[in-house]
């Protein structure tokens, strides 16, 4: 991996951290609100399905996770296990894609179907 890509990965991780900070806050406030008002799963789904705004919000949340987590894991694996090189890069890329697909599938199930 060339140096410019490494720098852009670092920048992407910082930017995704900023997005995650906001997303986690909104998510927690929403969850606490939903639990405090005693909403059932069916009532929650009734409110979420077809809601484009919330779908977009959680799609963004998933995207930020899919960017942030693999880049951080790449550093952790490199420093703690000494794993470096192309194999590590492909592994975390695959993990990022998997996280995005799993997350967006959940968003689809809760907000669209």
């Amino acid at each position: 991996m060339n140096t410019r890509t490494q720098v852009l990965l670092w920048t992407a991780q910082r930017a995704s951290a900023a997005v995650l900070g906001l997303c986690v806050l909104i998510h927690l406030v929403t969850m606490i609100y939903a639990v405090k008002n005693g909403l059932t799963a069916a009532e929650v789904l009734g409110r979420t399905r077809g809601n484009t705004g919330w779908a977009a919000f959680y799609a963004l949340f998933v995207a930020a996770i899919a960017v942030h987590a693999p880049i951080g894991l790449r550093t952790i694996l490199s420093e703690m296990l000494g794993w470096r090189g192309a194999a590590l890069d492909f592994f975390v890329l695959a993990l990022g894609i998997a996280l995005a697909l799993w997350g967006w599938r959940a968003v689809w199930g809760v907000f669209v179907v």
Binding site: M1, T3, R4, Q6, V7, T75
Partner: peptide, 12 residues
């Protein structure tokens, strides 16, 4: 800046 960038440089 190129010499100090990336995994072995300041970003580590």
């Amino acid at each position: 800046l190129a010499a100090v960038a990336g995994d072995a440089g300041c970003h580590a």
